[in-house]
């Protein structure tokens, strides 16, 4: 039985992946193509929040700072130090993971709004450093001429897709593993987790580190896609948007995270006909989604996946 559910679950991810894989084949106009790429790139940072918030219960509003760390690490290495893009692509998430581990330290002591404010402050510190460290980052003028990992745009698309797919499978496995259970125990009851042998500090640090690694990876892809970086892309509002994508996706569902990232990334573009008011409408929609998230949950796509996932959780425990 377990195997069957396992296959179904993996199939959902495969179905999404296969549908997306068709996109370069059918030939989508280049701007829309770019938006889908950005949606997938956002999916990576949203999955990073699924692990941190959905599993471990730690709310971060500083992820734009981590995205920036990954993006600028890649950009600076490639532009100023002529590092091979592939090597830069490897270094960026690792460096971000180190920075993110620092972000995790306050979580040893702080919870709720106390921790959230700390993450906002750390995110802002990163942004201000980027803004003022002009020699290295280009400051307010930005960093231009960043070469992509792969110049062929179709191949780039497939690279991103493969990365997202791999991360999704890995995250789903993490979710049902010993580590995932320790994360969820921390979310629900830190004292119970600790007393049952979970080294809560270590696991929180692990959650922040994994999450930051993925945020940094997303950042490196972002830099690679846009070719240009500017501190304005990494504000509190961006952190907020990632968080909202996570909530919309159901907080702890990986397929939900992917779909909501694609949808929310495309939303401002779909609303483009409304010209200037589109961002207002877009944020209003997000407000309403939160307000009615309980009512919506009965029909919400994310819930569908969550239910699947829960069953799956049980089955890994061995079906009768």
């Amino acid at each position: 039985m377990g195997k069957i559910f396992d296959t179904i679950k993996n199939n959902i991810l495969i179905v999404i992946a296969l549908l997306l894989a068709l996109i370069p084949v059918i030939g989508v106009p280049s701007y829309q193509f770019y938006i889908i790429e950005r949606g997938l790139q956002n999916a990576i940072i949203v999955i990073s929040l699924v692990i941190l918030l959905g599993y471990t219960g730690q709310l971060s509003l500083g992820h734009a700072g981590l995205l920036a760390t990954g993006a600028y690490t890649y950009g600076i290495l490639v532009v100023s130090y002529n590092v091979n893009p592939w090597i830069a692509f490897l270094i960026a998430p690792i460096f971000t993971a180190l920075i993110g581990a620092l972000l995790g330290i306050p979580s040893f002591k702080l919870t709720g709004p106390f921790l959230v404010v700390t993450t906002i402050a750390l995110g802002e510190i990163v942004r201000i450093l980027i803004l003022n460290w002009e020699k290295l980052t280009g400051g307010p003028y930005g960093l231009t001429g960043i070469t992509s990992i792969i110049s062929n745009s179709k191949l780039m698309f497939y690279l991103i897709l493969i990365i997202v797919y791999f991360i999704s499978v890995a995250t789903s496995r993490l979710s049902v593993s010993k580590i995932g259970l320790a994360f969820k125990a921390i979310k629900e009851d830190e004292v119970a987790a600790e007393v049952m042998g979970v080294d809560v500090k270590r696991y929180k640090l692990l959650a922040f580190t994994i999450s930051s690694f993925l945020a940094g990876l997303s950042g490196a892809i972002f830099a690679s896609l846009t070719g240009y970086l500017n501190p304005d892309s990494f504000t509190f509002a961006d952190s907020a948007t990632f968080l909202l994508m996570t909530v919309l996706g159901g907080m702890s569902s990986v397929p939900g995270a992917i779909l909501s990232s694609l949808a929310v990334t495309a939303l401002p573009e779909i609303l483009r006909f409304m010209a200037r008011s589109r961002m207002v409408i877009y944020s209003l929609v997000l407000l309403l989604i939160i307000r009615y998230s309980k009512q919506l949950s009965s029909v919400k796509i994310s819930k569908f996946f969550l239910k699947k996932k829960n069953k799956e959780d049980l089955v890994v425990g061995g079906g009768e």
Partner: peptide
Amino acid sequence: RVLGSQTVYDNVRL
């Protein structure tokens, strides 16, 4: 202090 939103199985697994 059990994990209310997890399954009985997962609670023991902890």
